[in-house]
């Protein structure tokens, strides 16, 4: 059995897998080592070939009918054995909810460390991997180093760019040997798909954010209108999704992190967990009736007033301005 060492990547989410390959390629060339992708599932040869096009120098496949659907213990046991056999120095895992559980338990089984949700991943001049992540509810960035290997990190969606697809890329594709798949300890008794937004809020140039200052779901039409004029999208705070159940996604520490040119926060108090997700916006506007709201300290432009008056007035003003330019 060959020990590859080097960098390995895995995510059950295909897009995220490509982003891991993007970051992985960059790190592999900095560390002068190889990039390997692990592919788990059933009938996944085609997927493996595609990953080579996206920069995997090697793909190791675990093809097993028991891996047709994602289930933690079967996937975890396969990944654990792969890691034990090939001894990667660094394993990048996609930070979905499934992936985070997988990474934590992989680290537990191997008795090693795991830095979840890395926002930064760099190599210092001693060749050490520096893993940076947000802590203290968005108040701080902690930089960590590993004392033992393999180093496991998880990486959120859309944090790093995926690499370019090249038809001509070459890579080795092999089947893993001697992998014992452990049965699942839990049973999925029902699944309900969640509608996922087709447009990605991370890619919007302008985001109009709405918070609990909006009394009814229907009132979002004034934000929709503003967003439309600006060619942007509407985002939400977490309570609108998780408490009021109006939406399924939100912006912030536990939701999407965005970095638009312009973020307009309407009826949003600017609690740190929300701000953690908008920090990289170029310009932040706050529309709030409370001059003491924390968002006021986080904004470039502040209008103190009732959003039900200001937002429609802003739409009118912008329409006029944009028509005249």
């Amino acid at each position: 059995m060959s020990e590859d060492r080097g960098i390995w990547v895995y995510s059950e989410n295909k897009e995220l897998m490509l982003e891991l390959l993007g970051k992985g390629s960059e790190l592999a060339s900095k560390l002068n080592t190889r990039l390997t992708a692990a592919v788990l599932g059933h009938d996944v040869k085609e997927q493996a070939k595609e990953l080579v096009g996206y920069g995997a120098q090697k793909v190791v496949i675990v093809d097993n009918p028991q891996l047709r659907e994602f289930q933690v213990e079967p996937y975890l046991s396969a990944l654990t054995q792969l890691t034990q056999q090939h001894k990667p120095e660094l394993f990048l895992i996609g930070s979905t909810r499934r992936g985070k559980e997988l990474a934590a338990r992989l680290a537990a089984r191997l008795n090693v460390g795991c830095v979840p949700d890395c926002q930064e991943l760099n190599v210092d001049d001693q060749g050490r991997l520096l893993a940076g992540r947000i802590v203290y509810g968005g108040n701080a960035i902690v930089t960590q180093v590993f004392r033992i290997k393999p180093q496991i990190v998880t990486i959120p969606r859309r944090r790093f760019e995926k690499s370019e697809y090249k038809e001509t890329s070459k890579g080795e594709i092999i089947d893993a040997e001697n992998i014992q798949v452990e049965p699942s300890k839990t049973q999925v008794v029902a699944v309900k798909p969640i509608e996922v937004a087709e447009t990605k809020i991370e890619e919007a140039r302008v985001v109009v954010g709405g918070g609990r200052g909006l009394d009814k779901k229907e009132d979002f039409k004034i934000l929709d209108e503003l967003a439309q004029i600006l060619g942007g999208q509407v985002g939400y705070t977490r309570p609108l999704a998780e408490d009021r159940k109006w939406f399924t996604e939100w912006v912030g520490l536990s939701g999407h992190a965005i970095s638009p040119e312009l973020y307009i926060a309407c009826g949003i108090s600017g609690v740190i967990q929300h701000v953690a997700g908008i920090r990289d916006s170029k310009i932040i506007v706050a529309i709030n009736k409370d001059p003491e709201a924390p968002i006021v300290e986080m904004a470039d432009y502040i209008v103190i007033g009732d959003l039900y008056e200001i937002v429609p007035a802003l739409s009118v003003a912008l329409r006029k301005l944009l028509a005249s330019t």
Partner: peptide
């Protein structure tokens, strides 16, 4: 297995310009 190198507050420099008008 992991060790903390440093904990820093993220940079947050904003203009904080309050816009005032007689009417909305």
């Amino acid at each position: 297995a992991v060790q903390v190198l440093d904990i820093l507050a993220p940079k947050m420099e904003r203009k904080k310009i309050v816009i005032k008008g007689e009417t909305p």
